[in-house]
């Protein structure tokens, strides 16, 4: 194991894939400058090893970054398109949703679209309405796409590898607040399979399902609740589509209680899907109805007291968990 930040681990993972397969390449804005990516040096140094044909510093042209990735994927390469932030990813939703997600199906299986789209999600303090959105549910809703949202450096690296090797288009969502967070990363290849959740706290009273940065907050929640004698199973989903139903069902059958926590706006969010699915499929095991927690349905405000209203904090998760435990 080696301790490193999320951004460094993912950059290492990308470099390893670039070395392994000459058809892997990356494109996006500012990828090859000394700045090397958004603000956490996710690409720094890669240009020196792999050159400008494989680390492509693009114009500010989101439609073409995404569209070119789709074209290059159907034409036999494995592009990693970086859209910087999910908010700018919206500028290229058309190419992703109308093209990448549908080409295999529409054309009767003639082509595959093996691409990865990196889009950073989440509130970073003071980033406000157009640099803070968590849009994972949009893509989970889109047939044809795989969606991953790793929450640790090891998962960031390992899931990027799986995403690159997958023949499906993969939306890879990384939380801005995690870029500089450190964790242990395995010294071996460390591939993390798509569709497999990880139980990060073991417990028998309550299941909390989450992903990305929120899974880290749920670990805190579990530790706090442990002080009250409540033992919590925390499942870090890691992949949102296809999500690991076996792991969630097994946990719910053990605890009889489910809370799904997400950072994104609660209404129409992915937590609702999980809660409903579990209710439909594990109803007999449930001691009370499943619950979810997510942000109020509002744009992300700037000033701190208001921004805090958007945040799904450990305190708020605990309040919802207590309500669930009392039911």
């Amino acid at each position: 194991m080696t301790e490193m930040t999320f951004a460094d681990a993912v950059r290492e993972g990308l470099a390893e894939e670039l070395r392994r397969d000459p058809l892997v390449w990356a494109l996006g804005e500012d990828l090859s400058t000394a700045h090397g990516g958004t603000s956490a040096n996710q690409y720094v140094g890669l240009i020196d090893e792999f050159g400008p044909k494989r680390i492509v510093n693009t114009p500010i042209s989101e439609n073409t970054i995404m569209g070119a990735a789709v074209g290059a994927a159907v034409a036999g390469t494995r592009p990693v398109a970086d859209l910087r932030m999910a908010d700018f990813g919206m500028c290229a939703v058309d190419e992703l949703v109308n093209q990448a997600a549908k080409i295999r199906y529409m054309f009767g299986g003639q082509a595959r679209v093996p691409l990865v789209v990196r889009q950073a999600i989440g509130v970073r303090k003071g980033a406000a309405a157009q640099h803070s959105q968590s849009t994972e549910a949009w893509y989970v809703h889109t047939p044809g796409l795989v969606v991953v949202a790793p929450g640790t450096p090891a998962d960031g690296r390992g899931l990027l590898k799986s995403a690159i090797r997958a023949d499906d288009p993969v939306v890879y969502m990384e939380h801005k607040d995690l870029w500089l967070a450190s964790g242990d990363v395995p010294d071996d290849e460390g591939v993390v399979p798509i569709g497999v959740a990880k139980t990060v706290r073991e417990g028998s009273d309550l299941t909390i399902v989450s992903w990305s940065k929120m899974a880290r907050l749920c670990e805190e929640v579990a530790d706090t609740l442990a002080g009250d004698g409540v033992s919590v199973d925390v499942i870090d989903l890691r992949t949102l589509w296809p999500w690991d139903k076996d792991a969630v069902y097994a946990s719910v059958c053990k605890t009889g209680r489910l809370l799904v926590a997400q950072e994104a706006v609660q209404v129409g969010g992915f937590a609702a899907e999980i809660a409903t699915d579990v209710t439909e499929n594990c109803f007999d095991a449930l001691k009370t109805h499943a619950r979810r927690i997510g942000a109020p349905r509002m744009p992300v405000p700037y000033a701190e007291p208001m921004e805090n209203e958007f945040r799904v904090t450990p305190e708020r998760i605990i309040a919802r968990a207590r309500e669930l435990l009392a039911a």
């Binding site: 003071g126 406000a128 309405a129 157009q130 640099h131 744009p299 405000p301 700037y302 000033a303 208001m306």
Partner: peptide
């Protein structure tokens, strides 16, 4: 008293 009621910050 912020121009955007403190909802937006520098970029808004």
């Amino acid at each position: 008293g912020g121009t955007s009621g403190a909802k937006g910050g520098s970029m808004h």
